[in-house]
């Protein structure tokens, strides 16, 4: 198995590692978004989905552990590569210029680290419920969470909603470069298909932004509200 370690430590192997973990995280982002969008079907649909997840702890915890492992590989590899890249240019240019690199591609490490910080906050906020206790605590008859009420109450606070929208905008920027980059790294480059893949990658990153942001947007504009007589 020595060749596996050698491969993933090499510059190109590290690229594959970033691309593969990145695309797996993209699948999670899409899955998470699909779950979130259930909110537009009403409180029952969203709560039923949340309760189904919690009623299948084996599935839930396996997913969480696999996701955490992928996430840790993605982040640690990125930091290792960034340090190597900084070491590769010890003296920077007095007069630097950029011809083709985009804001998204140049800020991958920064958007990535800011997203990491936000994800930690997001877990404390919604998963562990220790940030905004009045909005995120259990409220169901059996002590189970009313996820719909939690989301609507939390995003009713413009500060939390704005923070969330900002984080999703960072995700948009990260994926703007990330998805299109995946194809190049995997070696799937072709004069006919590359422009299409690049376009679709950017379009998908925009769709993800719109999908996620639609929830706090709808709460702020009153499209989604707590049922009358609720908490």
């Amino acid at each position: 198995m020595g060749w596996v370690a050698t491969f993933f430590r090499s510059s190109i192997g590290s690229k594959f590692l970033m691309a593969l973990t990145g695309i797996l995280l993209l699948f999670f982002v899409l899955g998470h978004m699909t779950g979130n969008l259930l909110i537009f079907q009403g409180a029952e649909a969203l709560n039923a989905y949340a309760h189904w997840l919690h009623d299948h702890p084996k599935f839930l915890w396996t997913s969480r552990i696999v996701l955490l492992a992928i996430f840790v590989i993605h982040v640690t590899t990125a930091i290792r590569l960034k340090l190597e890249n900084m070491a590769a240019r010890p003296v920077s240019y007095v007069k630097g210029r950029t011809l083709k690199a985009t804001l998204a591609s140049r800020s991958m490490v920064f958007t990535g680290l800011l997203l990491l910080a936000y994800i930690l906050f997001h877990l404390l906020h919604f998963t562990l419920g220790v940030v905004q206790k009045d909005a995120t605590g259990p409220s169901g008859p059996g002590g189970e969470k009313d996820v719909y009420a939690m989301v609507v109450t939390s995003f009713g606070n413009p500060v939390y909603a704005a923070g969330y929208i900002l984080a999703i905008a960072l995700l948009w920027l990260h994926l703007w470069h990330g998805i299109a980059s995946f194809f190049q790294t995997m070696g799937w480059s072709h004069p006919r298909w590359t422009p299409l893949f690049t376009f679709l990658g950017k379009a998908l990153s925009l769709l993800i932004f719109l999908g996620y942001v639609s929830v706090p947007f709808s709460v702020l504009t009153g499209l989604l509200k707590l049922p009358a007589g609720g908490n």
Partner: peptide
Amino acid sequence: NCTNQYECEATCPKEIPVAFIARMN
């Protein structure tokens, strides 16, 4: 390490495309 930003392709005096990097990968 390469992060697919394509500054190389934009500056190469012989205009060698980054498709060759994909090929090498």
